Computed example of a mutant assay.
Amino acid sequence: MNDRIRTDIAHNARVWNFWLGGKDNYPVDRKVGESVTGMYPSIGEVARADRAFLGRAVTYLAGEAGIRQFLDIGTGLPTADNTHEVAQRVAPDARIVYVDNDPIVLTHARALLTSSPEGVTEYIDADAHDPEKILAAVSPTLDLDRPVAVMMLGILNFVLDTDRARSIVRTLMDAVPSGSHLVLTHPTLELGGEGNEEAMEFWNKNATPPIRARSRAEFASFTDGLELLEPGIVSCASWRFAPTTEVAQFGAVARKP
């Protein structure tokens, strides 16, 4: 087994997989996942709503917006309807680069994230805290002179310093041309998410990496200089969809003018 894979402490990618009903997790992940669910019962709904948001956003970008390049940072473990599957269903020639730094994600991604014959799917082992390394590694798969959809779903919450998180987004978006898009989701203690505070404190004591919530204003600052697409910043469950319930996870898609 890869010596970077730790089975003695819960890890976000595996716990998220557990919440989505997957099997790529260990007893420690299930224990922490069940504890968090006990404190914050809607966490499974958050995970499913985030995945459904990804599907709607990528379908729009590959279709109506005509985007053919996707940079998905913080991929997580492969599950149903991954970014490349959604994009290549609409545009078989779409090119996708996944980025994660968890070795178990890397192992599964190499096996499961296979491209359509017309398109390309690649995987980069890199950390979201190092956007320069990511940008240097995306070629030759992505052409940064052509529009790119930069996907950061549930990843900036692991960048604990908000100024640093803004800098990461700015570095990435400065490197892509006009017509590129930024796709974001992020947990919040707003939108009925107040009960998540205790669960996040438990997470930070019992799992890795540490996490934080952000306010609407903090989330909005990640889109500074970009054009928010309708309906703006909403619960990710409500982005271009009428859900039965909202979840405490902001979602937004913004275009670089």
Rank of each mutant, 00 (worst) to 15 (best):
residue 208 T to I: 04
residue 128 A to V: 15
residue 147 P to E: 02
residue 116 S to D: 14
residue 134 I to A: 02
residue 135 L to D: 04
residue 189 L to H: 14
residue 141 T to F: 11
residue 92 P to M: 02
residue 118 E to R: 12
residue 223 T to K: 09
residue 60 Y to M: 03
residue 239 W to M: 06
residue 93 D to C: 04
residue 148 V to L: 03
residue 108 H to L: 09
residue 232 G to A: 06
residue 121 T to S: 14
residue 190 E to R: 00
residue 194 E to Y: 01
residue 81 D to P: 05
residue 85 E to I: 09
residue 172 L to N: 04
residue 70 F to W: 14
residue 3 D to P: 12
residue 168 I to N: 06
residue 226 L to A: 05
residue 127 D to F: 15
residue 204 N to H: 08
residue 93 D to N: 10
residue 188 T to S: 05
residue 111 A to V: 13
residue 138 V to W: 09
residue 146 R to W: 11
residue 104 I to W: 15
residue 166 R to L: 07
residue 173 M to Q: 11
residue 188 T to K: 02
residue 87 A to V: 03
residue 218 E to Y: 13
residue 185 T to I: 05
residue 194 E to S: 04
residue 180 S to V: 07
residue 44 G to E: 12
residue 18 F to V: 01
residue 208 T to V: 05
residue 87 A to E: 03
residue 213 A to M: 03
residue 96 I to L: 14
residue 70 F to D: 08
residue 104 I to S: 15
residue 81 D to V: 01
residue 142 L to D: 04
residue 170 R to M: 00
residue 63 G to E: 00
residue 252 A to H: 03
residue 170 R to I: 00
residue 62 A to G: 00
residue 90 V to E: 08
residue 160 L to C: 06
residue 86 V to K: 13
residue 148 V to W: 05
residue 187 P to N: 00
residue 73 I to Y: 10
residue 37 T to G: 13
residue 244 T to V: 06
residue 176 V to K: 04
residue 120 V to H: 13
residue 140 P to M: 07
residue 44 G to M: 09
residue 100 D to S: 03
